[in-house]
Amino acid sequence: MKKLLTLVLFMPSILAMGQNKEAVGTSPWGKTDEIGTLNMMSDASKLAILSKIKSGKTYDLSVEYFVGMPSFHALGDPAYQYWLTHTPRGTVVDNPNGLGNAMNEKVSYTGDAISMYTHMGTHIDALNHFGLNGKIWNGFSADEHLGDKGWKKTGAETIPAIIARGVMIDIPASKNSENLPANYRINAADLQEALRKQKISLQKGDVVLIRTGQAKHYEDAHKFLDQYPGINLDAVKWLIEDQQVMLLGADNLSFEAFPPERADNWVPVHTYLLAEKGVMFIEQMFLEELAKDKVYEFAFIASSLKLRGASAAPLRPIALPIFAK
């Protein structure tokens, strides 16, 4: 991972030649919009997908948080930390509540705390995460809307609960190989071929989840971070512009693959989705159980923490299988 990030961060400036003009998008939902394509949801669309649930089977699409979990520490971000603030024995010794030995020996007390980067584990990127030329989605500028306590616009607290049709696209299964090549860039043709084999069509407003198979290495940070596959610009443009999907997700570290496919942008997929198109996405998902059971279509339900001003928030997504009427 360190070698990869070094390559990304220190690309020779001589290569930084303009290719396609990039600029932040203006929202079709108005000048005050802070949630982009999540505006595609409505009470009617949510009810429509919920009414199709035919089973109580539930798939948890999130990973666990633990000390040593994969993280962006190579970029200088903090690793996940956990510590106990109260223990049963410590409460007896310290008597923090002033109630004495008898009470504290009878009533055990355990408390704990965590410290973490918001882009860890299963999380959703808010629209302020990446911008272009000093602005983020809908033209909000850092100079005007970024304070010492976070963004005043498009923070994670604005992200609504998400209920929509979900589709999982299983790339390894489509290619009959559980291990995609190192740094493999999933393209539109790959997505189309997988959907054909799964006999699934995308619909406007879908939540589309891309399985790379990387989640099976999640307990081993070195393997999870090492030259992982991801989606490319060609693929996301097909999903957003042609298929009009609402939200994206994947089971790898940062959705797109590295090193970057453009010389003038080290995260072209991130800026295209977040800054240009107002499309949020979910990273570090767990899609292995869906793949095992070949569940490709489902009701997708998720809600994130309301972290005011933050560029991301932990997300607990679930999938409930549906069957066409």
Results as ranks from 00 to 15, higher is better:
166 G>A: 01
44 A>G: 08
308 R>C: 07
81 Q>C: 13
116 M>P: 00
32 T>S: 15
195 L>R: 06
255 F>D: 03
225 L>T: 07
172 P>M: 09
25 G>C: 06
127 L>P: 10
311 S>Q: 15
123 H>D: 03
197 K>A: 12
224 F>D: 01
221 A>S: 14
239 L>Q: 04
34 E>N: 13
293 D>G: 09
18 G>P: 10
205 G>H: 04
289 E>A: 12
227 Q>R: 11
279 V>E: 08
249 G>V: 02
166 G>T: 02
97 N>F: 13
19 Q>L: 02
15 L>F: 08
5 L>Y: 15
66 F>P: 03
103 M>L: 15
306 K>H: 01
297 E>D: 15
190 D>I: 08
50 L>Q: 11
125 D>M: 11
124 I>P: 00
188 A>E: 12
223 K>S: 14
197 K>M: 09
155 G>N: 07
106 K>N: 05
138 N>W: 12
240 I>R: 09
101 N>D: 06
20 N>R: 11
51 S>V: 02
149 K>Q: 09
69 M>V: 07
39 N>S: 08
259 P>G: 01
244 Q>E: 14
9 L>H: 05
220 D>N: 15
268 P>V: 02
105 E>D: 11
227 Q>Y: 04
155 G>W: 04
152 K>D: 06
130 F>P: 00
295 V>H: 07
147 G>A: 12
211 R>N: 15
106 K>Y: 07
